[in-house]
Structure formats: C-alpha cells, structure tokens
C-alpha cells in the first residue's frame, strides 16, 4: 500500500520539477523576446504557456487523486499540499512571462533607452536565477536555500524602484520616451511579481519541512 503512495509522490515530485524548469525557460525566452523584439520568439512564449497551464491542471488532478485514494497524512500530506499550492505559483509565473513577451511586441518601434534596458536585463537575470535556484531547493528539499532565495527577493524590489525612477525621469525629459518608458515600468512590475511567486514557493518548501506556514516576503 505504501509502495503505491511512494511511487505516486515520486512521480509528482518529478513532474513539479519539470514544470519549474519549463517556467524558468519561459522567463528566459520572454526576456530574450523582449530584448530582441523577435516576433517568432514572442509567439513561442505565448504558445508555450498553454503547456505550463496544462501541467498545473495535471498536477492538481493527480494530487487530488492521491489524497482521495491513499489518504496521506503528516509529511506525505505536506508534500502534496506544497505541490498543489506551489504549482499555482509556477503557473502565474508563466502568465507573467507571456506579459513580458507581449511588451516586446509593443515596444518594437518605440524609442529605446539602453541604460534602462540594461537594468531590466540585470533584474530579469536575477529573477530567472531565483526561479532556477528555488527549483533546486525544492528538488533537494533544502529549507535553508529556500529561505536564502526568499531574502534575495529584496534585490528585485530595488531594481523595480530604480527602473521606475529612471523611466519617469526619461519620460519627463523627452516625451518620445513615454511609450517605451511605460513599457519598461510594466515589464519591471511583471518581473517583480515573479520574485514574489518564487518567494511563495520558498514558503511552501519551509512548510514541507516544518509544517509551519510562514511569511518570508
């Protein structure tokens, strides 16, 4: 009886890790698409999001099945709750990747600001790394690493502040920057939300380990 449960948990664990690396690829592609304004890449990100959504539905259905049929308790149940909750966070990260890619379409013909784009690039790399590391923390069930990653979300918030400041001042100085400046702020806000969702995943990793629901953000 225990064997079936263990196999099902193991499968869910792998599926969740796969979904995490798909979400990380989506962010990477979205950033590349935003920077290059490559139409094909933008559409690839949009189309791929369907795949991430389906993975979430699959994980939810499977986790509900395991709960109903195997009636797990204690650490097994906490693992399942984490998968259920954190898979929604990954799904939302995918949605933000789509929004970032779409901004790449809108900004294509606008006047760019290379300085701000550089900060956005740094910010997005930081968020991407946070996500890759949180998946690693999940796979290795490393509560310490999860907490560390959650702390590093402060950096994302600082990037957002900096980008807003730069964008506002460039819009004030030159009205031709109004369209691109708005898009920069929109994109930076999406990246900031990705950091928040990674922090949520970190909280669920802490829950799996300790049974305590904590606020790390």
């Amino acid at each position: 009886m225990r064997k079936i449960l263990e196999r099902q948990l193991e499968n869910l664990h792998k599926d969740f890790a796969n979904m995490g690396s798909d979400a990380a690829s989506a962010i990477q592609n979205a950033i590349d698409a935003f920077e290059s304004n490559d139409k094909e890449l933008i559409h690839k990100v949009i189309d791929n999001d369907q795949n991430i959504n389906e993975q979430e539905i699959y994980l939810e259905r499977k986790a509900a099945q395991v709960i109903a049929l195997q009636q797990p308790v204690a650490s097994d149940l906490r693992i399942l709750i984490t998968i259920l909750k954190a898979s929604s966070d990954l799904e939302r990260i995918g949605d933000h990747a789509v929004s970032i890619a779409r901004a790449g379409l809108r900004i294509k013909r606008e006047k760019k600001n290379p300085l701000i784009e550089e900060v956005i690039s740094d910010m997005s790399h930081h968020a991407h790394e946070m996500l890759e590391q949180i998946i690693q923390a999940y796979v290795e069930n490393d509560e310490h690493l999860a907490r560390k990653i959650a702390l590093s979300d402060r950096k994302t918030d600082e990037y957002l502040k900096k980008i807003r400041k730069e964008a506002f001042s460039s819009m004030q100085n030159d009205s031709e920057f109004i369209s691109s400046g708005t898009e920069y702020i929109v994109v930076a806000s999406h990246i900031e939300r990705i950091g928040d969702y990674v922090t949520n995943v970190a909280e669920w990793i802490v829950y799996t380990n300790t049974g305590r629901i904590t606020e790390l953000g």
């Binding site: 797990p72 308790v73 204690a74 650490s75 097994d76 300790t210 305590r212």
Partner: peptide
C-alpha cells in the same frame, strides 16, 4: 505535523 519521526512513520 507530528513531532517525532516514529509517529510520522506509523501514521503514514
């Protein structure tokens, strides 16, 4: 959230 591994093992 059992506090002892033996409890976790038994109830699981």
């Amino acid at each position: 959230n059992p506090q002892h591994q033996e409890t976790d093992d038994y109830i699981s």
